[in-house]
Design a protein around this nucleic acid. Structure first.
Lengths: 128, 128, 128, 128
DNA sequence: GTGGTCTAGACCACC
DNA sequence: GTGGTCTAGACCACG
């Protein structure tokens, strides 16, 4: 279900975050759906529960999931307010990467096609 | 000449790399032009020479510069082969970021405009 | 009658305590009035009876209600002695929060207005 | 230097956060001053380095300090924007506590005096 | 020497 | 059963 490379310099918890984000972005996991428990996922992936917990904690900080002690972790509804700051950061990263791609021989058309191709789930805007 | 923020979480060697890349991408530094020596730059920026050396080493690994032992480091000519691998990596990063931006409420039009806006120096393929 | 958010990080028993306190503080529930039974409230709110019981137990410990085995739980009369300890604790919490608000840019006037605005039921000291 | 009660139900990392906040709020520790290193503080207090790290991580999340890998942790300059959300939360907490204090026999005058008494360091507003 | 990541365990509060 | 806290270690990247 998840592909982790323990030899990569990308921290395991980040790899896990990326893959969980993908599941949510592609609507494989939907709002309020429960994520695997910290312990069960740790056992399944044979990594330490603390590492899972770190991934979940960070996903919660970024507004992707919410955790309730004693109940579990769940996909969070869309909260546009919480995302503004992060959106700005991501756009800056994007610009840096685009610059480098163009410099290394990539074309703008190619990048625009890449963007058009991307599909993500659409979420209702719930502000509570 | 360079602006380094020692309070940033971004490693100093990475900040230096980014700024050197910018100079090359905007044609402020041109092919075969010599970069400042490790020692002089270290003194000017009052940072550890090892940090400069790490930045240069990484830039060389990414194909941006080449070093001649005993002579110095120089801006590398465009080498399409050396860039293929890195280009692929960058495109993957791009896709990840684009997905997240769209998921967090950004629009494709917005991103395409951002791409259109980016300007980089154009380089001939080994012909100058 | 009660609004419980099972998605909140605040434990359910604590949410229940807060709302019962409010009812007592606003005189909606008056001294010696009987609270709903553990079982009926659990059924009405579709939550675990143990959770209700924990809320009642804590309210009793804090001096807000008293329980008579076999008869039920009731709003406690004002007992200045039982409250001294808790009052001190609350004042300490208050000071901590006020300090942080001021440090983060809040003004004293703003806080004083907030205090003036608060309304609670007034209780005689054991005289009704 | 720090007083920790390992038997308290308040987590150690929170006790530590509170005391560090106090030092910063009373200007005992000033902007950009370095905090004790994770390891040294862990040794001094004979608690686990991870617990210190958790306290520092949370203080960073709340905007009180910033940490630079390889260099240390430092008192953060004032950033009014990052605090708005937290300020609202704190005011809600304040209102709840004030209500309870008044209900338990405290007077508004008493609380206003308590507020007037509080002293915190004033910080310049630096938005970068 | 610094903070950050990770493991292999333990105990607690909540439901 | 769940997530959260905490300990006692190890290893890595940075400067």
């Amino acid at each position: 279900m998840f592909t982790l490379d323990t030899r990569s310099r990308v921290p395991i918890y980040e790899q896990l975050m990326d893959q969980l984000k993908k599941l949510m972005m592609r609507d494989v996991m939907q709002v309020d759906e429960q994520l695997p428990s910290v312990r069960s996922l740790a056992q399944e992936l044979t990594i330490n529960p603390n590492t899972i917990q770190k991934a979940y904690r960070e996903l919660e900080r970024e507004g992707f999931i919410y955790s309730i002690p004693g109940k579990g972790s769940f996909v969070a509804p869309f909260q546009i307010d919480a995302n503004k700051e992060r959106l700005e950061m991501l756009k800056q990263d994007l610009e840096k990467i685009v610059s480098e791609i163009l410099f290394l021989g990539g074309s703008k058309d190619e990048l625009i096609q890449l963007i058009e191709k991307v599909k993500v789930a659409e979420r209702e805007d719930k502000n509570d």
